[in-house]
Write a protein that binds this DNA or RNA. Structure first.
Length: 281
DNA sequence: AGCAGCTCCTGTACGC
DNA sequence: TGCGTACAGGAGCTGC
C-alpha cells in the first residue's frame, strides 16, 4: 500500500513524465473519487491547464497547475497513477476496469488513476490546507529538519500513547503506514505496544535513526510491492523494497537477529509483525 | 482521551 | 465447484 516511499517514487516519476504537459481532456468514470469541488467545476478548472510541478506532502501527491489550483491526490490503499509510455511491460497487469480517471494531454499521452478498492481521493484546491487532513499533517521524516531533537519534541506531545499508534498517526509524523511502522519498530527492538514515556534515550535515538534509514532505503528501491499487492510506480513497475522487509509479512520466518519465529498480533485492527524475543513489552 | 468497531471497496484465500 | 466468510488496510467516523 502506498506509504511515503511509494508516494515519493510516484512523485519522482510524475516529475519526469508529465511536467509541462497540458491537459486536453479528462474522463471521469467514478466521480466519487473527486471530493472537492463539484465534478463540473473540477473539469472546467483543469481543462487546458499545464502541469507546473509535482510535490509530496505525507502520503499526498500535489500537482501544481498554471493557475492558482493544485490537484491533490491520495492513493488510499490501492491507488495508482500510471503513465505507461516509456515502458509498456507491466501495463497488462493493471486491470483497466479500475481506471477511474484518465487525463489526456495535448500530445495525446495519458495519465491514468486506477484504484481497485476506491479508497483513493482527489481534490482540486487553491490552497492545499483546504484539504483538512493535509492541514493536520505532522513533520516530514525525510526532511533535514527532522532531527533527533525534533523527534523528541513530537514524541513529548503524546507521552502516554502506544508507540505504534503514534507512528501510524499522520498528525505527528507523516508518511509511515503499517509496513514501515512494523519495520522501524522491529529494527529498533521496540514492541509496538510500548508506551512512549517508557522508551529510554537509546531507544528513542535508535528509533529516530531507523525511521530515516528505512525510509531512505525504501525510496532508493522505489517502494514495496508485497507479494501480489497492487502498488506500482508510474511505469507500472513493482517496488523492490519488499525483498528487504525484515518483519512485515514474515510470519513464521526466523528473526534475522535471534532466529525466533516472527509472530503476528492484531493491534488496533492492524496486523503487527514482531519478534517476541527482540521486541519485549 | 482513546480505543473498538464500523465504513468505504474489491480481490484473494480458505473452510466446508 | 461454489458459497460464505475473513482478511488486506488509510483514514474518517461514531459511540462507549
Amino acid at each position: 500500500m502506498p506509504e511515503l516511499p511509494e508516494v515519493e517514487t510516484i512523485k519522482i516519476g510524475l516529475q519526469k513524465k508529465i511536467k509541462d504537459k497540458q491537459i486536453k481532456d479528462i474522463i471521469v468514470n467514478i466521480c466519487k473519487i473527486i471530493k472537492k469541488p463539484s465534478l463540473e467545476e473540477f473539469i472546467t478548472k483543469i481543462k487546458d491547464k499545464k502541469i507546473k510541478g509535482i510535490d509530496r506532502r505525507g502520503k499526498y501527491i500535489i500537482i501544481y497547475l498554471d493557475s492558482e489550483d493544485k490537484l491533490v491526490v491520495h492513493l488510499g490503499m490501492t491507488g495508482l497513477l500510471i503513465y505507461p509510455y516509456d515502458n509498456k511491460i507491466t501495463e497488462k497487469e493493471i486491470n483497466p476496469k479500475h481506471n477511474h480517471l484518465i487525463f489526456t494531454f495535448t500530445d495525446n499521452t495519458q495519465l491514468v488513476f486506477n484504484d481497485v478498492r476506491r479508497f483513493g481521493k482527489i481534490f482540486l484546491v487553491s490552497n492545499i490546507d483546504d484539504v483538512e487532513s493535509i492541514a493536520k499533517l505532522g513533520v516530514e521524516p525525510l526532511e533535514s529538519y527532522f532531527t533527533e531533537e525534533i523527534f523528541i519534541q513530537v514524541l513529548n506531545k503524546k507521552k502516554n500513547c502506544k508507540i505504534k499508534s503514534f507512528l501510524m498517526k499522520q498528525e505527528f509524523i507523516t508518511g509511515l503506514g503499517n509496513i514501515y511502522a512494523n519495520e522501524v519498530l522491529y529494527r529498533s527492538n521496540i514492541h509496538p505496544l510500548r508506551i512512549i514515556s517508557s522508551l529510554n534515550k537509546k531507544e528513542v535515538r535508535n528509533l529516530h535513526q531507523q525511521i530515516k534509514l528505512v525510509l531512505v532505503e525504501a525510496v532508493k528501491l522505489r517502494g514495496s510491492t508485497v507479494a501480489d499487492e497492487a502498488y506500482r510506480d508510474t511505469d507500472g513497475e513493482k517496488g523492490k523494497f519488499a525483498e528487504k522487509l525484515q518483519v512485515y509479512a514474515q510470519k513464521g520466518e526466523p528473526c534475522l537477529k535471534c532466529g525466533r519465529s516472527i509472530e503476528v498480533v492484531r493491534i488496533e485492527g492492524r496486523s503487527s509483525f514482531i519478534c517476541p524475543k527482540c521486541q519485549k513489552l
